[in-house]
Nucleic acid binder design. Structure first.
Ligand code: MN
Ligand code: MN
Ligand code: MN
Ligand code: MN
Lengths: 224, 224
DNA sequence: ACACTAATTTAGTCTAACCTAAATTATAAA
DNA sequence: TTTATAATTTAGGTTAGACTAAATTAGTGT
């Protein structure tokens, strides 16, 4: 139960969580790509995490890694820090939503539980961050998320953007320019099955066409 | 001019700055004590810092270390982070002055220049932190400090507390209980040369006697 | 000038986290 | 079923930053 996890370990756990959330183990290669690290380094770290007392991941050779309860708890703690920090930076310090990921990714490993609690209550215990990502509660319960990719929306349905799965600052700035941010209402006007282009109207604005590389990263819920 | 300094290096520089501020080189032993590290580790690190391009310290065997201009700049940058963070935690997040040192000592190494600038302007570009320590400006100029130890105040002079040189939480809580905080007015009522006890009145309160272990850590300026 | 002590440095290890190159294993196609 | 390709693991090596124990140096008192 001791909390001596290093920054690299916390980042591994965070990414294993994201990759294995659907139930399928996180693979060496995917982790390596996300962490910006050589696959061999991932194998080494996974074996170490599986050998800790208590183990943070379960692992069988060539089968990828899954979090143990202890590993999941540690991952959710870091994710809570990250998302609360992003929210605080945007809400209280005037950062824009494309500036906060990097900053939060460094701060998340060093803030105390006291700091976590203070910013959470300064923000009114928010449940979602500026990108619409759910923030685990203080008890580490992850809010449920029913949203689905905008890519799947078909005319004439409309929906509300709940979440944007992106960290790349230029991409986030582009989405912002298009009005494709959480809370925006999007109506599907046309879908082209061959190139997967989707024509949409955002918040009563002009019709525009967006490719799958964009619409797959935007998550919506059909409402109204 | 690259900013790849690790957290341990930044902490070394910060402590070398504090120890050599008066002009005398920082000794291996003093650094080891402050950093909570073995003397041999300090020697190794100092030699490394002196060998960097550009060098961050000058060093002659057995003579201790002094900061180079580059080293001083890096140290002041960290100190500015630390003291702005302490101020922010107290002013904006409701921390008490004994809680902030540890937190700031971790955060100081990971905040961006943007973050630094945002909290500085949210605070109105303060020049002193909650303990009265001067905060280097954005241009890394250290505000001058003319204060002297309360230990040197003699009856019937009185003075204002400018600064408290302490990081130990219980000690800081004790000072707070006695009202010995920056801004408080202190009048010397009696001094006992043998035990160095000083009898003082704080802000029109009851007379009290404080030992040298306390009065040497409190810095004052005679005013009025 | 000399020797003792305290401070400092050297030498030799250790661990975490990364790397590259080579070897191995799994999976999918022929 | 065999084989090719891709994924993964192993082997061997590096760097930063710490440690202990041993050797050396500086400074002080005689
Ligand atoms: Mn991170
Ligand atoms: Mn986010
Ligand atoms: Mn620090
Ligand atoms: Mn301070």
């Amino acid at each position: 139960m001791k909390e001596n996890l290093t920054q690299p370990i916390q980042d591994y756990l965070k990414h294993i969580y994201a990759l294995s959330e659907a139930g399928t183990p996180a693979t060496t290669t995917d982790l390596a790509a996300r962490l910006g690290v050589a696959p061999a380094s991932v194998t080494g770290m996974i074996q170490r995490l599986a050998g800790l007392q208590p183990p943070l991941v379960t692992y069988r050779k060539h089968q990828g890694a899954l979090l143990t309860p202890a590993g999941k708890r540690a991952a959710l703690e870091v994710i809570r820090h990250h998302r609360l920090l992003e929210t605080y930076l945007v809400t209280m310090l005037g950062f824009s939503w494309d500036e906060v990921h990097e900053e939060a990714c460094r701060l998340e490993h060093v803030i105390s539980e006291t700091f976590e609690e203070r910013i959470a209550s300064a923000l009114g215990n928010p449940t979602h961050d500026p990108h619409g990502d759910p923030i685990p509660s203080a008890a580490l319960e992850m809010p449920t998320d029913e949203s689905t990719p905008l890519l799947g929306l078909r005319p004439p349905h409309s929906a509300v953007i709940m979440r944007v799965q992106a960290t790349d600052p230029p991409f986030l700035r582009h989405l912002n320019n298009l009005g494709l941010i959480p809370g925006a209402r999007v109506q599907a006007l046309a879908f082209s099955p061959f190139d997967q282009n989707l024509q949409v109207r955002v918040n009563e604005g002009e019709a525009q066409i967006i490719g799958a590389a964009i619409s797959a990263k935007i998550y919506v819920e059909e409402k109204g």
